[in-house]
Design a protein around this nucleic acid. Sequence first.
DNA 1: CCGTCTGTACTGACTAGACAATGGTGCTGA
DNA 2: TCAGCACCATTGTCTAGTCAGTACAGACGG
Lengths: 260, 260
Amino acid sequence: MAAARQGRVSVWAQIAQDLRSKIADGTLAVDAQLPTEADLTAQYGVARATVRQALAALVNEGLIVPRAPRGYFVRHRKPLFYRPQTEFRPQPKTPEMDRFMADHSADGREPWQSIDVAIVAPPPDVMQRLKLQEGELAVVRRRVRHLDGEPFNTNDSYFPLRFVQDTEIMRPVDIPRGANQVLAEHGYPQVRALDEIYVRMPSPDEVQRLELAPGTPVACHVCTGLCPDGTPVRVVVNILPGDRHVIVYERDGMPAKDHE
Amino acid sequence: MAAARQGRVSVWAQIAQDLRSKIADGTLAVDAQLPTEADLTAQYGVARATVRQALAALVNEGLIVPRAPRGYFVRHRKPLFYRPQTEFRPQPKTPEMDRFMADHSADGREPWQSIDVAIVAPPPDVMQRLKLQEGELAVVRRRVRHLDGEPFNTNDSYFPLRFVQDTEIMRPVDIPRGANQVLAEHGYPQVRALDEIYVRMPSPDEVQRLELAPGTPVACHVCTGLCPDGTPVRVVVNILPGDRHVIVYERDGMPAKDHE
DNA sequence: CCGTCTGTACTGACTAGACAATGGTGCTGA
DNA sequence: TCAGCACCATTGTCTAGTCAGTACAGACGG
């Protein structure tokens, strides 16, 4: 504790670092239970609040999960692939991609999704991307995808109401051939898309909807689909929990600069 | 505090929610100072630790930043674009992209980068991607990019030592025509790349290197560059702080399914 | 007018407790 | 054998303080 003043590193940070390295070197394996708060309190000779601050830091880093009232456990991280590209064209399937994906496939896991459809005034950012007039409404198909009973990601597709009125897009059921196909059949084929990926911490809303453990950041993937004339006809907002996804894509062509 | 038991929402969570909505509706504007812990303690009639827990939650969500000993401030979020695509081919420059990017350009901001080069035993994940033998060494060019004096992202490029020995890649200076060009000149042109994007909380290391505020998640963009015969010649690890980047890319072609 | 010094207001860190809520375990009885 | 119940270990929440470190502002001296 004197070290806190002298060494510039607080006691709780030291405890956190100690536990962190035990996780890194396997002393504390995945899914293993950490010593209890009481144990750590005794072991390091500090107050419980100090131990809790250390544990909170690890929770916020996504390294451990509290499972009250049983204890803290080393977190499991088993991300699945998320490939924006495959939605647009059948992927090239190079050998590298194949080999790489073998580890993280969804084989044998049970998919399930809930769909609900609503007519709403879309949030401002969606309105702007769809170029809607003030007060103009949109149809949103909200889906939560589950894998093995656990929520996996959310997928909210917004369409301007005037484009999809009386189409099957408005029915809250799965559309096997895809909503994009339906849009194309009604005269709105998409030929281009703009993708944006934001990285941030989830809102309490999202925490609840996706049953996120504390310390889980999310990627927010916003995809705007455009007609040949540039009219936006679809905005999709995907929320991808960081602990469950790797976003993957592949590129061809000669690199120009070494910006990466 | 009775509400904590009955209403199922803890006092600190209520305080956090209260502040959250004040931030959302603009009562607390960007860069504004929050009431001090003492104020909040008095205002809500709770102990300081309770107020601190509420504030810590907002910090972890990335909504506010503590600037000791001055107070807590509403966080500023001004992301810049990050476009993996432009590195590979000159971007198509559609009107949509143009318009969209106008808001977030780097105009008038001063770029600067530090470079350091080392010969290292690369981390296991990099070793695997470069298909290195056990014990084989690699050259790493570590860069930290700054904008307006603030660190912006890190960019660590790994090359197998045997491919780049005695090339200018090993000199810790900027290579105007790009490291990829140098590699190509030495017989290792890259024609394909595999990108992976992971979303997670930063390690304490990364927090320090990028001067990250608490509650800032990062995107970890790993790019593996491949020769025509599939040999990996370059692995780049980019760490992109979530509060400073939007990852953007554009796609052409007919969408197939509505997975997004 | 400018530099320095000092006080103050604030967060950071820590202590030492209390009571509530709840999975899990194991015992008991039908 | 199995359902139900009581107990317990453990985290969640909260109180009420102390002391340390520091950016800032205002006073003071040259």
